[in-house]
Design a protein around this nucleic acid. Structure first.
Length: 947
DNA sequence: AAGGTCACG
DNA sequence: GACGTACGTGACCTTG
């Protein structure tokens, strides 16, 4: 009797996508993401060592999708065209899958022009024909067409499937349960359903239910389509008649090709034990130490012989292994600026590109003529592959100076063309310090830099709040000082400062190389130093899944920019100029003298000394306070001059900060305004916006709103503004677990009115306004004096309100207490998604300092969670719109709880529900909220009109 | 460069 | 008894 043979065919490509999404984002000691590879490795381990199991494999091969187009694209060019690009930290794992397979000494099959499914089908049929049993390790629904039944001892051999992720075998019964038809009809069902991920059209409006019903009733796709004319009138009938061709083409697309040429004969798939040496080297390299120990202990197999459940069970072990096994990093040699190369020939450039491609990790820095990425000219590029292994490629030095001799340099276009494949190579990670800048500069030269890693953002993930106040502590010079004990050449030292400053393009090449190559070198070193800390300090999740994928998204928003109506701003500027001039005259008249109205010092002296109004001095400067609340108070007492100064200030502010400045900010090439978002701007994880700041455009007063009317869509388009309604209060309700608030949100109540009712028993304009103030006070960390000041009541009364609030909304007090306890103990707060913010002064002896930290610490988890949620929505937004054929919708702005889009008017109906869904569901699946996230959407021909 | 003020969430 | 009083930002103006 022939020995029983059982072939396992592993669908490698589909496995790693699922492993990526199911497993935590681990990184190896060098900082390369390996979560999916780890999952894949444990699965292979289990399979390859299951030889002795009853239903285990005697033969095994891994089948992968080859890159590039398949024959299906010849049938239908748009096949798989809608696929969003794979996640950034998954891309570099693809080549590692092949490494892992080779490490097990297993065959790894892929063929240009064929998909893994076709090879699997072909091998499965070939093995079946020889009387072997076959198990397909996959859960892909297309492959379910192959599943068959063993029809008695002499019938054809069995083909089944194994979903290792769910530890589930898929036999014919499971296929029938899923599709309502036998496996041979599954293709007919799929042809009707279509598949949005693969862009198989199917028939619009027919989903899995209708499709399987039709096929089950009529017995085949052709029969169902033939029957359509006899159906009674319905939408379904119309669609079947209209889209018959689509369905027939879809049927061809979902058909598996079962007669490919076999790249390797079946016999070579024989399992013969796993040679330990290459496997050990692989496990060692990637820090999979728990697997390595098992290998060393000679067991050769994981400890669970009976159940197939590697993924779930291995998760914790994986974390432990990736974190625990890391050896101390080798010392890096001191920075030696003399070691850097100036690359001046194509030959040398090609050599660097070849080495960088092989290294799979390269630090990149661009030198330019401007800090504004949307205007900067490329002056040079530096690369680093290791400590003191860096170069500078000058591209536009000396070009502007007609008298100096232009130093030898590679032609810029030629260099850009040569660098493009490297900078776009999926398997090479480009490290940058604030790489969003380089992405945007290079994007204007036709290079789409990806995948990327960013030392500034890694630093922010690890150390937000830890640095000195100001710069935020994530600039390169500070990081280099702090982590490497090295002070790099500063830009000032190289280019000078103030009037004597020269553009970088005029720096001589030796000096330029020292500066530029050092920046890349230092960036590479910082990456080596900090990236592994992410795993050790539980920063990987927020970095890999939120902040890092956000980089290209925000970069694109910046490149889009937003159109601004210059003429409209100019008219407003004129109006404001006239008004301020008039007011200034009147103010001088009342004061009885001329003075600078814009000087708080002079104004204070006029008001309180000359005119004799009562008011207090302020702080150490000894200057009178003249701020809004003080002027309001004086105005309330009848001071005409205070009213006029208030009005003057409003108009002067609007003119200088908005109507004048925004006109200046219009980019001459694009005609639009391109802000720059900082991903490390706010300690809580919020973005910030600069040059110009588009997150503080006026909205609260009618006069200010006129500025919003100048933000407009392109012709034929509209602006769409979508914002989270009361997101921070909703999050507070969830995080502090406040039943009353949660219920109020669930009922869709006006939350401030509800608070007023709880607090004062009565809802009117006054009590609602007070309640609103109290709600915000809670979010910001309350004090009786602060609240008293805002509500203009006595501190005792404010304290009574706080007590009532805590009583009516149990949970809040506990949240505040527990948050502070944790922060005092650990030094940092955490959002629901694990983002940390450090509070180094939380235990300060200085009371003001300490209490300030306490208030910030109460607020940070709430503000930070809200920031995490909208960031997650931003990351998912374009793929979701793309899927719906709305890839042309442009996401332009983010204002903390609001996203602004530009799209053709006709697409509003299609895009709105997608935008709403992505935003509303952005917390999941990582976090399940007890409250719904409400989204409000508006559209219009200006940003103002969209609200 | 610092302080004051005020625009936003 | 001090210390100042709501969280997070960025831009502009005046002053030293």
């Amino acid at each position: 009797m022939a020995e029983h043979q059982h072939l396992y065919l592993v669908d490698g490509s589909s496995y790693i996508f699922r492993a990526y999404h199911r497993l935590p984002p681990l990184t190896d000691p060098e900082g390369t993401p390996v979560g999916a590879v780890y999952g894949y490795t444990t699965m292979l381990w289990k399979l390859a060592t299951d030889l002795d199991e009853a239903d285990g494999p005697t033969h095994l091969a891994v089948i992968l999708d080859a890159s590039g187009k398949s024959f299906r694209n010849d049938i239908f060019p748009e096949y798989k065209a809608n696929r969003p690009p794979p996640p950034e930290d998954l891309v570099p794992q693809f080549p590692l899958i092949r490494d892992a397979t080779r490490a097990f000494s297993l065959p790894c099959i892929e063929e240009q022009g064929l998909e893994a499914d076709d090879l699997i089908a072909t091998y499965a049929r070939a093995a079946q024909a020889q009387g072997w049993d076959v198990t397909i390790v996959s859960s892909d629904k297309d492959l379910m067409q192959l599943v068959g039944e063993r029809e008695g001892p002499n019938g054809p051999a069995r083909i089944d499937m194994l979903d290792t992720m769910k530890s589930q075998r898929i036999y014919i019964e499971e296929v029938e349960a899923k599709f309502g038809v036998k496996p041979e009809l599954v293709g007919d069902v799929l042809a009707l359903m279509g598949d949005s991920v693969d862009n198989i059209p199917g028939i619009y409006g027919i989903g899995p239910k209708t499709a399987s019903k039709l096929i089950a009733e009529h017995g085949s796709l052709t029969a169902a389509l033939d029957f359509a004319p006899e159906m009674k009138k319905s939408k379904l009938k119309e669609r079947l008649l209209e889209s018959r061709q689509d369905a027939e083409m879809s049927r061809v697309l979902v058909t598996l090709k079962e007669d490919c040429d076999l790249p390797q004969p079946l016999d070579e798939f024989k399992l013969d034990g796993v040679p330990p040496e290459p496997l050990a080297a692989f496990l060692e390299k990637h820090g999979f130490s728990s697997l390595l120990r098992r290998l060393d202990s000679g067991k050769g197999s994981p400890e669970r012989p009976n159940n197939l459940n590697p993924a779930k069970q291995e998760t914790e072990g994986a974390v432990a292994s990736a974190q625990g096994s890391r050896q101390p990093l080798p010392e890096m040699p001191a920075v030696d600026r003399g070691s850097y190369e100036t690359v001046q020939t194509m030959e040398r450039l090609e050599a660097w590109i070849t080495r960088a491609t092989a290294a799979r990790l390269v630090a990149v820095d661009t030198e330019t003529s401007s800090l504004d990425a949307m205007r900067a000219e490329l002056v040079g590029v530096s690369l680093a592959l290791g400590p003191n292994d860096a170069c500078y490629i000058p591209l536009a030095h000396g070009g502007n100076d007609m008298f100096a001799e232009r130093p030898e340099q590679i032609d810029r276009d030629q260099a850009v063309a040569a660098l493009k494949p490297l900078l776009e190579d999926d398997s090479v990670i480009k490290i940058g310090q604030n790489i969003k800048y380089d992405i945007n500069v290079l994007s204007r030269y036709g290079i789409d830099v990806a995948p990327v890693d960013d030392t500034m953002i890694i630093s922010f993930t690890l150390d937000a709040g830890r640095g000195e106040v100001g710069m935020g502590g994530h600039g390169m010079d500070e990081l280099s000082d702090r982590h490497l004990g090295h002070t790099p050449l500063s830009f000032k030292e190289v280019c000078g400062t103030g009037k004597k400053a020269i553009p970088f393009g005029e720096v001589d090449l030796d000096r330029a190389t020292e500066y530029a190559a050092e920046d890349a070198d230092v960036t590479w070193r910082l990456h080596r130093h900090m990236k592994p800390r992410l795993a050790d300090e539980s920063g990987t999740r927020i970095y890999e899944r939120v902040d890092r994928p956000l980089i290209p998204v925000v970069a694109q928003m910046e490149r889009h920019g937003i159109k601004v109506d210059r003429a409209r701003l100019s008219r407003l500027s004129e109006e404001f100029a006239k008004e301020t001039a008039r007011l200034e005259g009147e103010i001088h008249g009342i004061a009885g003298q001329e003075f600078t109205v814009g000087s708080p010092k002079q104004l204070g002296d006029i008001l309180f000394d000359k005119l004799g109004f009562k008011g207090g001095k302020k702080g150490k400067s000894g200057q009178y306070s003249t701020d809004h609340s003080m002027l309001e108070k004086l105005a309330g007492e009848g001071a005409e001059i205070a009213k006029k100064v208030l009005e003057w200030r409003q108009l002067a502010k609007l003119k200088s900060t908005y109507t004048d400045a925004l006109q200046e900010a219009i980019n001459p090439d694009t005609g639009r305004v391109h802000t720059s978002y900082s991903l490390v701007g706010a300690q809580t994880g919020r973005l910030s916006s600069t040059d110009p700041n588009l997150q503080n455009i006026p909205i609260r007063t009618p006069i200010g709103r006129q500025i919003r009317e100048a933000f407009v869509p392109d012709e034929g388009n509209v602006l769409l503004a979508a914002d989270y309604s009361q997101i921070e209060l909703r999050l507070a309700a969830h995080m502090a677990d406040v039943p009353t608030l949660k219920e109020a949100f669930a009922q869709g109540e006006d939350i401030h009115a509800r608070t007023a009712k709880e607090m004062f028993g009565e809802v009117n304009r006054d009590t609602r306004a007070q309640a609103k103030t109290i709600n915000f006070a809670i979010l910001y960390g309350i004090s009786r004096w602060g609240l008293a000041g805002r509500l203009e009541v006595e501190p005792d009364e404010a304290q009574a309100m706080i007590d009532t609030y805590f009583q009516r909304f149990p949970g809040i007090q506990r949240y505040i207490h527990e948050t502070l306890e944790t922060v005092r103990e650990r030094g940092y707060s955490e959002t629901l998604f694990g983002r940390k913010t450090w509070f180094p002064r939380i235990n300060s002896k200085n009371v003001a300092e300490r209490q300030g930290s306490e208030r910030a610490a109460i607020n940070a988890p709430i503000q930070g969670t809200s920031a995490d949620i909208i960031k997650r929505a931003m990351v998912r937004m374009m793929p979701a719109l793309d899927d719906a054929g709305l890839g042309h919708v442009r996401m332009l702005l983010q204002v903390h709880d609001e996203l602004v889009f530009e799209l053709p008017e006709g697409d509003v109906a299609a895009a709105s529900p997608i935008i709403e869904r992505v935003m509303a569901e952005a917390a999941g699946p990582a976090v399940k909220l007890d409250v719904l996230l409400g989204i409000e959407i508006g559209t219009g021909i200006s940003w103002d009109a969209a609200h």
